[in-house]
Design a protein around this nucleic acid. Structure first.
Lengths: 255, 255
DNA sequence: GATAATTGTTCTTTAGAACAGAACAGCTGT
DNA sequence: ACAGCTGTTCTGTTCTAAAGAACAATTATC
């Protein structure tokens, strides 16, 4: 068993654990973080000192917090996505005009990551950077419906069917049926599959090459999203927007 | 000289260098990054593999990019600032109503960091997470004017007077005079001190405790920002907004 | 206000990890 | 088909990262 050539840098894994712990606990002290991350005080202390020195962590009267130097990294990560640049303004307009929360998400590592949102009401499905399973949201299903079968297989193998609510899809048969329907109608509905009583309408954004680039969705409470508003108006609005974004993506090609 | 007990974790510093290099070069390959960061191929390879495993780096057909997992870290860093939550909507409105780019920034480690912006024109002074010296921008000067002298000393010691343009403030005497004037009129003007021909109007946001929490500014090209619009209308608008934000910060206290 | 308890910081030691460099493999382009 | 890349694996050595104890500083408790 000396064959396992660990190409991993364990000090980096440690730092990542510390940062993620801090994200959830901030502001927090050395001991608190060490306990939560299952590491020793002295080690955590050294890591925090290193991070602080580079501005990735800030110490304010004895407690640590994440530094603003993480901002440009997150920003660089989403700015590299042309769909982000093309969709931003459209998402805002969509939210304003429909009076719902509007989201832009992309698939990364088998999860839908929210990269932009416009809030109109306070029932929020997740802030920037939140990830949701592809099987339990309108955005996720809209994306899945456009991915090649092999990718769907991969993703399902990796993440399974997380049962977020009692309405969540929990087997492959049901998923395939639903995806087929989504492909036919062009949009996906979420009737409380991710969060109970939270509904959503999503549609995929395709690039000029025909590949999925992400998805747009609007979401809100069951009480507001029902009847023709939920089943016709919103789908129409969402499809209009994805359409505009797709056109923008084509224009960008020629630039 | 064996006395220097290095409390720093050098592997972490290495990873940071790699990440920052990748931020500037993405998409990039192993060799490219190794050269730019002054490290060996094999080491960079191992670090990237570790980061990729955690989703902080993504490999797409042989090239590396920053992963979206950085997004929630940056988001957590700014969400912890109450001024961000209080100011967001006001900044957007300010920008829309004045037809200029509007910014929110806070001081961290002696620099003004842009944490939110609303764009109206394309002459942008920096995206989310950008840092600018406190001495060369309206936001920075507005903040400096409200800091205790000792902090100003510290900051000037650390960062000096970066000469961004020929109008930049380059000595302490001129700075003190300017800060005094800013305190009297309540706002700061930037006449091309950061970027030539780029003007700005900024004002500090004070917390209920009287401490600076950040600054608001609007910015645009010299041609548009001049006369009474630059010297009266915009200052009035910016002061109105900082006032509203300050009131919001007080409300939040009682919650 | 004295003492106990807890947290942050420094120090020392040692196992083992990170690194460099070389070797190999897989592409790309010519 | 071959040359010159790049990415990946491997191996040995050095020096670092980590643990634990000791100390200092701070906070809590009575």
């Amino acid at each position: 068993m000396g064959e396992k050539h660990t190409t991993e840098v364990s000090a980096v894994n440690r730092t990542i654990r510390i940062i993620e712990t801090l994200r959830d606990l901030q502001p927090a002290g050395v001991t608190e973080i060490a306990n939560a991350a299952g590491q020793t005080k002295s080690s955590v202390y050294n890591h925090l000192a290193t991070l602080e020195n580079e501005g990735y962590v800030i110490k304010t009267n004895g407690e640590y917090e994440l530094g603003l130097r993480f901002l440009p990294l997150g920003e660089a990560a989403r700015q590299r996505l042309s769909v982000y640049r093309a969709a931003r303004a459209e998402i805002e307009q969509l939210g304003r005009e429909t009076g719902t929360n509007a989201y832009l998400s992309v698939e990364e590592r088998g999860l839908a990551t929210v990269i932009f949102r416009h809030l109109e009401n306070e029932i929020d499905l997740g802030s920037i950077g939140t990830t949701v399973p592809l099987t339990t949201s309108s955005m996720g299903k809209a994306i899945l419906a456009q991915l090649p079968v092999e990718r769907v297989d991969e993703i399902v193998d990796r993440h399974g069917f997380p049962r977020m609510t009692e309405s969540s899809i929990v087997d492959r048969g049901a998923l395939d049926e639903e995806l087929e329907q989504i492909r036919q109608q062009g949009f996906a509905l979420d009737k409380g599959e991710h969060v109970k009583r939270l509904r959503g309408v999503g549609a995929a954004i395709l690039g000029p090459d025909g590949e999925v680039r992400g998805a747009v969705s609007v979401a809100g409470p069951e009480r507001e999203l029902r009847g023709p508003f939920f089943e016709e108006e919103l789908p129409d609005a969402v499809l209009d927007v994805t359409n505009v974004i797709e056109l923008k993506l084509m224009e960008n090609m020629s630039v």
